[in-house]
């Protein structure tokens, strides 16, 4: 089905163009010579909820081992796009995705691809910290356990400890690993969720406004953590805070009304936006 739709997307693209001539659909792209190579690419992705189209023909390359930020006013489709990358939209009834998203050249929407395997490679951190009602240890051990990553108990303990260390949480919780994860503070819970995602050993981590439910101090800690993580992981972060995007990301993509308006190196986007709407958003005129 995907193949058919992809081949049609070129036709559709021209149709949308003529219909929507004023709001040009062409994404403005500023190339970044220093960018890491991209293993994750999106090409002509559109998303429909029932009859309603939420995302229009988005194409973008996500460079590896760096942070890419998706920004834009609420309802612009940035979260929808993020959830396409590990096919979380599959869990929503009536949601249909067309176009290609590829990881190492393999189409994620290929019928043969196992979504379970995909999500083990592309982890996700959500807007609201959502630790399972289990102990801290069990929260982190959950992924390795279901995927069978640990051969024995020591293996599992090692994975849990490393993940907690990477998430910068270990020192804070090492003497209460077996108390419930829901008992932690909001910022700690979110770091627990990050540790949980890393325990599976993903290559890509998707973060959906990970700091929106946190106070400024917890936010700062998470931001530092994201900065540390980018040496090993490809991170895509959705944020409604432009400052956050400017602080943590190397690449920024601006979404508006379901369309990808402009993308480029973060610095370029923030200092020298080429598209009027991007400029308006960054200066606070639309939001």
């Amino acid at each position: 089905m995907n193949q058919v739709l992809t081949s049609r997307s070129a036709l559709e693209m021209s149709a949308t163009h003529s219909k929507d001539a004023l709001a040009s659909h062409q994404t403005v792209r500023t190339p970044d010579p220093d960018a890491h190579p991209s293993r994750l690419r999106a090409d002509g992705v559109s998303v429909f909820y029932g009859d309603k189209q939420a995302l229009f023909d988005v194409s973008i390359d996500i460079p590896e081992k760096s942070v890419s930020a998706l920004i834009g006013p609420s309802g612009c489709g940035k979260s929808t796009f993020l959830r396409c990358i590990n096919r979380m939209n599959d869990t929503i009834e009536g949601c249909k995705v067309t176009g290609d998203i590829t990881l190492d050249g393999q189409n994620l929407y290929d019928g043969n691809l196992d979504v379970v395997e995909l999500r083990a490679r592309i982890g996700m951190v959500f807007q609201k910290p959502n630790p399972f009602p289990k102990s801290i240890f069990e929260n982190v051990a959950y992924g390795p356990k279901i995927h069978g990553l640990a051969r024995n108990k020591t293996d599992l303990e090692e994975i849990v400890v490393t993940s907690l260390q990477k998430a910068g949480l270990f020192e804070e919780v090492k003497d209460r690993l077996h108390s419930p994860g829901t008992g932690l503070s909001g910022g700690q819970q979110q770091r627990l969720c990050i540790a949980r995602a890393m325990a599976v050993g993903p290559e890509v981590i998707l973060m959906d406004e990970p700091c929106s439910a946190l106070d400024p101090i917890a936010t700062a800690i998470i931001e530092e953590l994201i900065d540390e993580l980018r040496s090993n992981y490809t991170i895509v972060i959705v944020t409604h805070s432009m400052q956050q995007a400017a602080r943590v990301s190397q690449k920024t993509a601006f979404f508006h009304l379901g369309k990808l308006i402009e993308e480029g190196p973060t610095e370029a986007i923030f200092t020298n936006p080429r598209e009027k709407r991007t400029q308006d958003y960054i200066t606070g005129r639309i939001g």
């Binding site: 590990n86 979380m88 869990t91 379970v116 395997e117 995909l118 999500r119 083990a120 982890g123 996700m124 951190v125 959500f126 609201k128 959502n130 630790p131 399972f132 009602p133 959950y142 992924g143 279901i146 995927h147 969720c193 949980r196 995602a197 599976v200 998707l206």
Partner: peptide, 19 residues
């Protein structure tokens, strides 16, 4: 959100339900 958290880690539906 709990369901999403589990799916996001690559759990199958029955793993999410049972665990």
């Amino acid at each position: 959100s709990l369901r999403d958290g589990s799916y996001g880690l690559g759990a199958t539906q029955s793993e999410t339900i049972r665990r």
